[in-house]
Design a protein around this nucleic acid. Structure first.
Lengths: 303, 303
DNA sequence: CTGAAAGCGCTTACAG
DNA sequence: CTGAAAGCGCTTACAG
C-alpha cells in the first residue's frame, strides 16, 4: 500500500466521520471503556461534584460513566449492578452519604474492581474519604487565630462517624472542656442550639464551629435575630462549602471544603488502574480538606 | 435435546451466574441499551431529579444512562458526544438550565435520536419543558384563593423566557396593573425587593409570588426582619419546590413543583421510542406543574 | 425440532 | 511490509 493511498484512506475516513465501533473493539480487548458510579445520595449534593471529578479524570482515557442512583433499595441496586455487569463495565465506584454505612447491595466478589467513596467498603479494597479530623482542626485553629477563646461546636447526630471525628478534633484543639452539642443536620437545630446557649446564664461563646453549612446558616440567622453581631462578637465556621448556602448567609460563611471533585478524580484514576491490572494498595485513603475563608470570622487573610 | 437436558443447562447457567455479554449482543442487534444524558447544569439541581426519572423509566427496559456534565465548554461537549457515539448509544437526552439557550454543542444530524429537556432543541425534534404559565397561574390563583388582592411578583432576570412566561401569567390572573419586579435569582434580590417595596409610601402588597424559592427565602427573611408576619399579613409563594430551601424557610414555603422526575420519565420513554424506530410527533411538550402547599400562605387545605 | 454455520465490526497474530 | 484469516460472544437464519 503506497503512502499516498494510506493518506487518502485516512483523509476519507475522517471526512466521512468514520468512528470505530467501541462495542466491537470491547469484545476483543475485554475493555468497555465504561465504568459505573453507584450512589444512594438522591439529592446529589455529594454525588455531583464527585461525579464531575470522576468524569474529568476519565474522559481523557476515553472512559464514560454510567450513573446509577439506587436510593436505599436493595432490589433496585441489584438491578443496576447486573445491568452494569452485563454491559461489561471495567469497574465500579460506589459512593454514599456516610462513611460508616454500606450500600444496600453486595459488591464483594464481583468480577470487576470496586472502589468506595464516602461509604463503607471491603477490607481488601480501596476506600476514599475526606479527612474529617484534619478539616475540623483547620476550622478550630482558624477560630483561635481570629482570637476566639470560648469555642462551641454545634453539630449533627453523634451516631455519624464523621460527626465524632470532627468533634474529637475540635476538642483536641479547643481543649477538652469546650462544649459540643449534638443534634440534627438542619438549620432549625442551629437555631435551637443558639437559643439554648444564649438563654443560659454562663459565659457565651465567641467562636462557633458548625458540623455543616446548614447548621451554620441557622446559627448565623439566630444570632442576628438576637442582636448578636457576626463576626464582630461571634465568629462562625461551617463545613461542606455548599456554595449555594455559604454564599447566601449574611455574612457569607467561612467553611471547610471536602474537595469532592479531587476525591472523585482520584477514585476515577484508581478504578482505572485496577481495571488495567495495575496493583493498588488497599485501605482507607483520607484526603485533606481546605478552609474557604469568607466573612463570617472577621479575618480576611487567607488561612 | 431432551427437556431434562435443557432444564439442566438453564439451571447450571443460573447457578454459575451466566450473564450474556451485552456488548456482543449489541453488535448484532444494533442496540446498545445505553443512552446518554448531556447537561450543562453543573450544580445538578435540575439534572438529578430529571436523571432519576429517566433512569427510573428505562431501567425496566434494560437501558443504562451515561451522564455527561459538559458545563459550557464546547470542546468538552464534543468529546463527550463523540465518546457516546463511539459507544453506540441508542439515543441522547440533552438537558439545560434555560429553555431559551442551546447547549454549546451541535446535536443535529446525529445518527441517533436526540430529545431535549429545558434547553432549546431542533425544529424536527421533541423538546420537553414545564408549563411555566400554568405553574404561575396556579401560584397566583392560590394567593387569590387565600383572600389576597394586592399582589406582587418578584422574579429573576427578564431575559429568561421562563421569567417572562411566569410574569405574563401572573399579570393575566392578578390584573395588568399589579407590579412585577425583575432582578436576580438570589436571596439577596428577595431582600432588596422587599426593602424597596416597604420603603415606599403606597399600599403594601398582601401576597407575593416569587420567581424561585431562593428569592422567596430572601423575601420571607426580609419580611420577618421588618416585623411583617408571614402568612398572617403577607402570603408568599415560591417556584421550584427545592425541598432543602422550601422546608427550611420559616414558615415552610408553599411553592410550585415542576415535576422534573416525571419530565425525565417521559423524556426517557421518548428517546427509547425513537431508538426503536417508533414515530413520535416533534415539537415542544409542556408538562403541568403542581402546587405544593406548606405554611407560607396561611391556608392549609390542598389546592 | 435440533444443531451447525454465518456474521455483527473490529483487532491481532500470522502467512506471504 | 502487506494482506488475508481467525476470533471476541453472541443471535439469526438455514440446513438437516
Amino acid at each position: 500500500m503506497a503512502d499516498e493511498t494510506r493518506e487518502r484512506v485516512k483523509r476519507v475516513a475522517s471526512e466521512i466521520g468514520f468512528r470505530p465501533n467501541a462495542l466491537a473493539r470491547g469484545l476483543l480487548s475485554k475493555r468497555s471503556f465504561t465504568i459505573g458510579l453507584l450512589t444512594n445520595d438522591t439529592y446529589g449534593r455529594f454525588t455531583l461534584p464527585l461525579m464531575a471529578g470522576v468524569s474529568d479524570a476519565l474522559v481523557d482515557h476515553g472512559v464514560s460513566v454510567f450513573l446509577c442512583a439506587i436510593e436505599d433499595d436493595p432490589a433496585l441496586g441489584q438491578i443496576h449492578v447486573d445491568a452494569m455487569l452485563d454491559k461489561q463495565v471495567d469497574g465500579i465506584i460506589a459512593t454514599g452519604k456516610r462513611v460508616d454505612r454500606r450500600l444496600p447491595v453486595d459488591l464483594s466478589n464481583l468480577s470487576v474492581p470496586v472502589v468506595y467513596a464516602f461509604t463503607e467498603g471491603d477490607q481488601e479494597s480501596v476506600t476514599f474519604r475526606s479527612d474529617d479530623a484534619q478539616g475540623a482542626t483547620l476550622a478550630t485553629e482558624w477560630l483561635m487565630k481570629c482570637g476566639r477563646r470560648r469555642l462551641l461546636h454545634i453539630t449533627g447526630p453523634e451516631q455519624f462517624f464523621s460527626v465524632r471525628e470532627r468533634a474529637n478534633a475540635f476538642c483536641k484543639v479547643a481543649g477538652e472542656s469546650e462544649p459540643v452539642m449534638f443534634g440534627a443536620w438542619s438549620e432549625s437545630w442551629g437555631h435551637e442550639a443558639v437559643e439554648k446557649t444564649w438563654s443560659r446564664e454562663d459565659d457565651k461563646p465567641d467562636g462557633i464551629f458548625c458540623g455543616n453549612d446548614q447548621i451554620a446558616r441557622g446559627v448565623i440567622d439566630a444570632l442576628r435575630e438576637r442582636g448578636v453581631r457576626v463576626p464582630q462578637e461571634v465568629s462562625v465556621v461551617g463545613f461542606d462549602n455548599w456554595e449555594i448556602v455559604a454564599d447566601q448567609t449574611r455574612p457569607p460563611l467561612t467553611t471547610v471544603d471536602m474537595e469532592l471533585k479531587e476525591l472523585g478524580r482520584q477514585a476515577g484514576l484508581t478504578v482505572l488502574a485496577l481495571a488495567e491490572g495495575r496493583q493498588v494498595e488497599p485501605g482507607v485513603r483520607k484526603l485533606p480538606c481546605r478552609l474557604v475563608v469568607r466573612q463570617s470570622c472577621g479575618a480576611d487573610e487567607s488561612p
